[in-house]
Structure formats: structure tokens, C-alpha cells
Design a protein around this nucleic acid. Structure first.
Lengths: 264, 264
DNA sequence: CGACTGTTTGAGACGCCTCAACAGATGTGG
DNA sequence: CCACATCTGTTGAGGCGTCTCAAACAGTCG
């Protein structure tokens, strides 16, 4: 499951200077003569296996991490033991913004598949911020982006039906994978139904039902963790408030009369 | 409604140097000889009336703001026109972190009462970051704090009952107002029931019902926007998962016996 | 092969929303 | 000052969407 296609070509430990992902990195615009020296402050290319923790809620550290390949989920545990997934993270994304105030991570991050991740110590962050205005601005931008993402998740969980959440989730995933509309595309869910459910504020059964319904409608084809998106427009339609524009489900066998009744 | 007690003593426009809130300010530790010059880059002590917008979702700017006195709410509008309150902000808190990546605010902020707010231009932020490591770290800390706050709000909205949300909301408000446990205290809700409901992912009717129930239980006394917290411990108890330890509600006609029943 | 986890599907329960009516507070203009 | 409209907040009755609980199945691993 090599998401980027050529991970196997990389040495396990490499300098930032030769990193094939440096354009996506937080520190992408560092002058190259600095980069080499800085690599001593970076944990390069750490391999994590599926299920491994990158860090745990409560860990005392101010490291931040950058996903180089693979995928992770972040989650928060409440005092009562409830656990909620608050994000999925793919290549190029930054983790660990939650510890830079309190010196304790407010969330845990777990690899969803075998992943390669770089770490920046707080020492390095401060050094880069002090010497490189570009890095500093990039860091601020990433922070801001994360906050906006949280807002969107809040909007998603609040006051949307399970079907809307499902549709929006899939569209978000498609967008992050770089797919545009109108293509017949295949989507690889790296996370479990339970993860999706937790992220969307639902239970796994409901997620399963939503996906099944989408499949019955001809919107997509579900095969375990592999999805084929057949009708992207329908998905977009469903992600909006469709209370007034209810589309007929697969009518043949069972209904026929019901959708007509629903039409006005 | 003078939350801090001596707003009226302040001049409308003053330098940062003489600001009585500089200890709480993002720029609190600036060397005093710099502060005077910087005040030209700060919009000092702008007065907003209740209902005024500090900024609107979609506004093109990268200013950030600091609430000096008063209170605000921030909210996000979805494409379908739904609106959700995502935060309340009191003196000392920073607003506007959501525009530093895209150069567009992802949320709106509205004054809940007459408020005094300072603004920092992006130009100033960058200048301070470049010259003052302390400011830079403080900014990062505020960012991180905001992200953790968002996580907590997500946990609050997801999988909690209306009563838990109500209890947690009140406790959060108490904590931010600096009250500790065990006191009989008065709480002044500056926001409407609709604002609370939106923030908690509920409808105003439900918020009203929850508050009424808390009052019937002897937990607090509701009088419009003024609350008296009578039994803080009970509130804490209710904020946890009380499915297994359901406390008896008012069974008798009205009261009298209720406090006694609650004593163990 | 049997345990185990993850997923799907169904039936019923329950919590919150919706809709409606009403009360109280606030503001406006005559 | 009152009549009126408007807005906020409260309370009740009923409906609906999601959760809960249960069962069955598939896939994986020992």
C-alpha cells in the first residue's frame, strides 16, 4: 500500500537536503546550506507500523511531526474513557500543534498504515522561527489552516444528518487525494468504519447504513475498504441540505409509490 | 455591565505602554521602549457596541484582535445558511487566528456587549515575530491553546447528552471567570439562549429545558441571563457520564426534600 | 479449524428536534 | 403614557433520526 509510489527507493535515514518531499515540508524554503546542518535536529524518516502511536495524549513533549508517507488518525480521550477521532492525516500534513502551549499533547496520533514520519523538536522550531521568516510564516499558516479545519469539522458534526456527514466526508477525502469532480474514481479508505463513525459523530452501524444506501442509490460501489465513486454529482448533491430536493432511491423492487409521495 | 470594573477610567486611545491590560496582552513582554513606537501599528481601544461585527466571515484581512474588555462570540456560516457559534471570548483573549493562512476570515466575530478591542495588523505580527522571540512563542502558545479548545468543543458536541453539554458549558464559563469550586456564585450570561444552543449543538428550547431542569434539581437559580450556582458539586457530577449514577430529580411536589435527598 | 475482529443488517427505544402557544421584556410611535 | 409590534425565553405534544441491542457473516490470524 505505497501511497506515494516510490517510498521503497528511499534510504531509511536521509538528510533534509535530499528529501524528495522537501517542497511539501514545513521547512521547504530553507536555504540549502542550512538544511544539512539542521538535519541533526530532525528525526528523519522514522518508520511506523500500522497501529503504532506517534505520540500519546498526555505525552510531555513539544515535538511536531510531518507525515512523509502513509496515513494517521488523531484522537482525543475524555476523562470518561470515550474516544473521538478528530482528524486523518496524509502525506505533507503536520501533527502535534496541540502541545506547543501546555507542553503536553492533548491528543494521540496513531498510524493507520505503515508510515514514514519526520519529527521536529521544539528547539528546532524555535531556531527556525528565529532565523527564517519564511518558515515562521509557514508555521503560522499551518496553524491557521488547522484551526479552520477544526471549524469545518465542528460544522460537519453539528446539525447535519448522517447521510450529509457521510457525503461530506467522502468529498473531503476526494479533495485531499487530489481528485476533481466528474471522474470515475477509486478511493481507498485507510481507516475503519469505527474511525469514520467516531470522526463524524456517529456509530459504526450508521456509517455502514449510509454507505449501503449510497450504494443502493448507484452513487458508489463499496467493497470493504475500497470505494468506487460512480456518481460524483449525486454525492455533491447529497452533501448539501437535501431536505427539499429529496432524490428518489432505488425504487424498483420495493417502493415506486413512495418517492412520488415525497416529491412535493 | 462593566466586567472589569474601571473601563470608564480609560482614555479611548492610549498607547500600549500605558495599557492596563498589557500583562494579559499577546505583546506583554515587549521592552517598554519599543512599545510606544509599535502603538502606531496597533488599533488601540476600539469601541464596539453590542451586536457590532469585529470582522465578518470572508473579510480579506490578516488582522488579529485582542479583547480588552467586554465579550464576543465567533460563528461560522455554512453555504446552506446555517450558522454555528464556535466560541465566546472574554478579556485577554485573541481573535482572528483563522485568516493567517488564506487571508480570509473563516468566521465572524460579533460583540455580545459593549467591548473594547485592540487590533494587530499582520505587518505588526510579522515585525514582532521577527524581532521578539518572546512574542513569537506567545503567539504559538495562543495558537496551540486555540486548537486544544477546538478539540474540547468537538468532544463536547459529540456523544454528550444535552444535560451534560449544559453542565459542561456552565463549568467552563465558571472556570474562565476565575471561580473555583465550592462557592455560591453568580454567573452573568452575556449570550442568548440561542447562542448557547448553537455553541452546544442544540436548539434554544433544549437549552431552556436543561436550565429549567437544573433549577428544579436545586443546582442553580435561573433569572433571565443571571444565574446563581447553588450546588457546584452537583453540576460537576452532571457534567460527567451520569448514566449509571442517575440522581433523583424532584419527585415530590416541589422542593424541601430535594436538597436532603441529594446529600449522599 | 476455531477464536476474534470488523462489517452489515434488522427491530425497537429514546433523546432531541419540530411545531405551536404563550409569557415577559423591549422598543417605537402616537 | 399606552397600544402595538418584535424579540427572547419557556413549556408542552408529537415525530423522527440515530443509538442500542442483537444476530449473522466475512476476513484474518493463531
Amino acid at each position: 500500500m505505497d501511497r506515494i509510489g516510490f517510498t521503497h527507493l528511499l534510504p531509511n535515514i536521509g538528510s533534509c537536503y535530499s528529501c524528495f518531499k522537501k517542497e511539501q515540508c514545513l521547512a521547504k524554503r530553507l536555504p540549502s546550506n542550512d538544511v544539512e546542518g539542521l538535519s541533526t535536529l530532525v528525526s528523519n524518516n522514522i518508520k511506523y507500523r500500522s497501529g503504532d502511536y506517534i505520540y500519546r495524549q498526555g505525552d510531555t513533549s513539544q515535538n511536531i511531526f510531518i507525515v512523509k508517507s502513509g496515513a494517521t488518525k488523531s484522537l482525543v480521550n475524555s476523562v470518561e474513557g470515550n474516544e473521538q477521532v478528530i482528524g486523518f492525516h496524509f502525506a505533507g500534513e503536520v501533527l502535534g500543534f496541540d502541545a506547543l502551549d501546555t507542553n503536553q499533547h492533548a491528543s494521540s496520533v496513531i498510524a493507520l498504515e505503515n508510515s514514514i514520519i519526520c519529527g521536529f523538536s521544539r528547539q528546532l522550531i524555535d531556531k527556525l522561527c528565529a532565523t527564517d521568516a519564511t518558515f515562521q510564516k509557514e508555521l503560522i499558516a499551518r496553524f491557521s489552516c488547522e484551526i479552520v479545519r477544526d471549524y469545518q469539522l465542528l460544522m460537519l458534526i453539528n446539525k447535519k444528518t448522517a447521510e450529509q456527514r457521510g457525503a461530506i466526508f467522502l468529498l473531503e477525502l476526494l479533495a485531499r487525494m487530489g481528485y476533481s469532480r466528474g471522474q470515475v474514481i477509486y478511493l481507498d479508505l485507510v481507516m475503519s468504519r469505527a474511525d469514520i463513525a467516531s470522526y463524524l459523530g456517529l456509530v459504526p452501524e450508521t456509517v455502514s447504513r449510509v454507505l449501503s444506501k449510497f450504494e443502493r442509490m448507484g452513487m458508489l460501489v463499496v467493497k470493504k475498504k475500497k470505494l468506487q465513486i460512480v456518481d460524483n454529482e449525486l454525492l455533491v448533491n447529497y452533501s448539501n441540505d437535501h431536505s427539499l430536493q429529496q432524490l428518489p432511491e432505488t425504487n424498483e423492487i420495493e417502493d415506486t409509490a413512495i418517492p412520488l409521495a415525497r416529491l412535493y
